[in-house]
Design a protein around this nucleic acid. Sequence first.
DNA 1: GCCAACGTTGGC
DNA 2: GCCAACGTTGGC
Length: 136
Amino acid sequence: MNYWLIKSEPSTYSWSDLCRDKKTVWDGVRNFQARNHLRAMKRGDLALFYHSGDEKAVIGVARVEKEAYPDQKAREGDWSAVDVAVEHGLATPVTLAQIKAEPTLKDMVVVKQSRLSVQPATKAEFDRIVKLGGRV
DNA sequence: GCCAACGTTGGC
DNA sequence: GCCAACGTTGGC
């Protein structure tokens, strides 16, 4: 079982959109590193759902429903998509400021490589964030 | 609004 | 293969 962090600009696709849809196609990734992470995802893996932009916080947890398959929206190139579903929300979003302030979290990829839209997280990081936010 | 970080493109 | 120029993302 692996853990991830997936990022989205809320105006593009937000956590509340996912809660409404229950499940969505995670496509549109056009970065090799991010794509390779998508391809490493296994069904049942959990991903922290992070809002970039104004919020800058982990707001929920998604679950990988379907492993990587060709991104139907890609007009050219070798790109992948996965399906993700709602796992559970967080009672309080865990902000980037909190992450940076937490000794156990300050080395997360999101702090160092803020632009990478799909990134791995460790079990310890994942558990810590869920604990800080409070599972709903 | 600015800037840092990073990726891509194209000239050499 | 290198590097300058440029575009995009995202934090501040």
